[in-house]
Design a protein around this nucleic acid. Structure first.
Lengths: 229, 229, 229, 229
DNA sequence: TATGAATGAGAGTTCATTCAT
DNA sequence: AATGAATGAACTCTCATTCAT
């Protein structure tokens, strides 16, 4: 109803001019959250983040409700990048190249933004069901294509790929800014775990659900008392 | 050292009867710290830990000075286990078997005590020079033996072994209690990175000092405000 | 166990000398709570109360956990006075004189301490079950005696006496410091409601439970969100 | 007054079409204030009230300036009802019936709207001079008529009637929704205080001014910090 | 030496009020 | 005139650390 009363503008994207400030503040807050969380860990105060963003503390709460919600928003943005990397990988006609490209893209997304990487390694995520839903299907499809093409062993599970990526993220973090490409050193070795030749992997992989739980356990945003709704 | 100044007691072999209590309290506090840190993360309060240990909060401070010192003590104990694993590995006549045994022993130490593993992954260590000094030499000797015996590639650095162990620790944590042996699934693959056959590892490894810094950066006990010395 | 090791003292009331500070602080906090609540209403901050008491805010929380607990403690003290008034009334051989004396004692307790009266009128109490238990039985006994002696009408309920007292408390508050005895002006009139002569009271009294609920509803400490356990 | 300055509109009888919205919003806000204050106490936020009213928070401030002003407006509306009840009582040819009718009408106004009653008991009023002016004269006239007719004792003051009404309001609140007529149970008793037969009331009544101050003291809207004028 | 009461800085969060749109 | 985003003071509560007993 409000749209009919506003003076029409030649361009469509001027639909909500009022929100310009709000949108800018939201972006500022997410950027500040990335920076401050990266520097000081997840125990950094929202006050610090708001100050870094140059907005009042009340504004931070209007946008995110609590610290958890801000971390989630950062997480969501990060997952966005990974999801689109998966989509690009699925567009690749070569299943193996697609898989490798996906893996490298994920790592590159993280290494490109040190704040993001450190936040992701050190933190988060409790409502990761979204991640599960948005990402798992794509990864399974990537692996299925590769298995059918004979370039990935049949007993390699999605959680194996997940473990490989987790390990590389850890190494990327080890490398830090001094050796931002350190993770590439172990890519051939770790990829060999997925290859059809060579001895089978011992033991069993995690189920998708176990992997899900593990990610939450490892990276879940810990709050002493459950945050009020 | 402090014992010399205590007032004489009637019996000679009872010179330090009070120390027994003190030692017991120290052990109780470290055990409680492991448990509570593991359950509630490093933000757990020293009050909780003291209560769990069954001692007063003042006693905790007499023994450890501050929370950081308690975490350090826990760390120190953990390193003790790793150091003795390294010594045992050096006693093994087969350099490769010794290396593999060391790696497995390290992981077993961590998986045997869930509290310890979670504390170590989530936390610590700032004065890790101790670790550096006590451990690095032994690891270098282990690798040297193996390189000279031709069972490890010449360009494999100590930091490569460190990276492998770190990755396996991560996987061990992914496995959690449901799959406590998950890390074994990736041992053959990761060990192949150290073997002399196969293509050389791309890039360069971290120097020992870079690795040292990285460990501190990754696992260093973060305190918002620099703890008063 | 601790009592055996402390040097004996001639008097029994020195059993816990360590608690002297704590006890003093508790008393100071309750007194300050009375004063500050009376002056500024129940929205006064615990900071203000702690400052008035001359203790740190942390001390206030060590003693009372939250604002509600402090209000409850004040309430409890007030109920103590009323309970002993009831006991004294039951010791009176004349049932009617005992009843009247009780009523007057209750009002006098309240008018003697303006802070207490204002706190009680403006506030409190949610776990008033204690009140229910400690007071209701005594009041019922007082009324029973009087009914059996023929000095109170048979259909006068405990809640009728409660309503009379509530009304008088209201009037006492109306009188304030300028007319601290104003409530006495309406005592004869209101007592006549309980007398056996005269027409019966119309309608029905509240049941004990309804009265209980009403007291909670009227005076219950309101907290927007339920205080964390 | 502001209407004279608005730009002319094509139609004359549409001179204040915007006012209709404004008036509607005012009504909506008062109703919402009653509801929300009744449900959540005076600490309810203006945000909640504006949301309940379906208007923006800014609109609430345009109409009322601050929370206090809204409470005052609610109060004013309530007094309107009481004033017209007094006028109707003065139209009654029987002075005693008029007085009783007035008293019952006041109570009925309050019990008819639970929100109103709870707001009035729990809150307000600071600029109650309006109340004084609009109501006191009428009550005095009511009493004078009754005194001259010999149906009310000569020493019964307006503040006595005020005290009686206050007490009945308290009882009405005690009754709540479960016993909305509980107050009627004490009407005969309390009215007997005004009757010319029977012993005189002990002590002295409050003066009109003392009563005025008492009402402000008891029901005055308390704000921790003095609201910025 | 052990204890736990006291302390206060700092964290998360709310809300009355202002102001740009 | 209406809207709701922005603001920041104030509040409740926690916890690392100190100190009297």
């Amino acid at each position: 109803m409000t749209t009919t009363e506003r003076p029409q503008s030649p361009e469509d994207d001027a639909v909500r001019p009022m929100r310009k400030d709000a949108a800018r503040n939201r972006v500022l807050l997410i950027a500040a959250g990335r920076e401050v969380f990266a520097k000081r860990g997840l125990d950094a105060s929202l006050d610090d983040i708001a100050r870094q963003a140059g907005v009042g503390i009340g504004t931070a709460y209007r946008h995110f409700g609590n610290k958890f919600a801000l971390a989630e928003a950062i997480m969501h943005e990060a997952v966005d990048g990974v999801v689109s990397a998966a989509d690009r990988a699925l567009d690749n006609d070569d299943p193996w190249a697609g898989l490798v490209g996906f893996l490298e893209a994920v790592l590159e997304v993280q290494t490109a933004d040190r704040g993001l990487r450190e936040v992701l390694m050190g933190v988060h995520e409790a409502k990761s069901d979204a991640v599960q839903e948005r990402l798992l299907g794509r990864v399974e499809r990537l692996l299925d294509r590769a298995r059918r093409a004979g370039v990935v062993r049949l007993d390699a599970a999605a959680s194996d790929l997940g473990a490989v990526i987790s390990m590389l993220c850890l190494v990327a973090d080890l490398g830090g800014d001094e050796a931002p490409d350190l993770w590439r050193r172990y890519v051939p070795t770790l990829l060999s775990a997925l290859r059809p030749d060579g001895p089978p992997l011992p033991g069993r992989p995690l189920t998708d659900d176990e992997m899900h739980q593990a990610m939450i356990r490892l990276h879940g945003l810990r709050s002493a008392r459950p945050l009020p709704d």
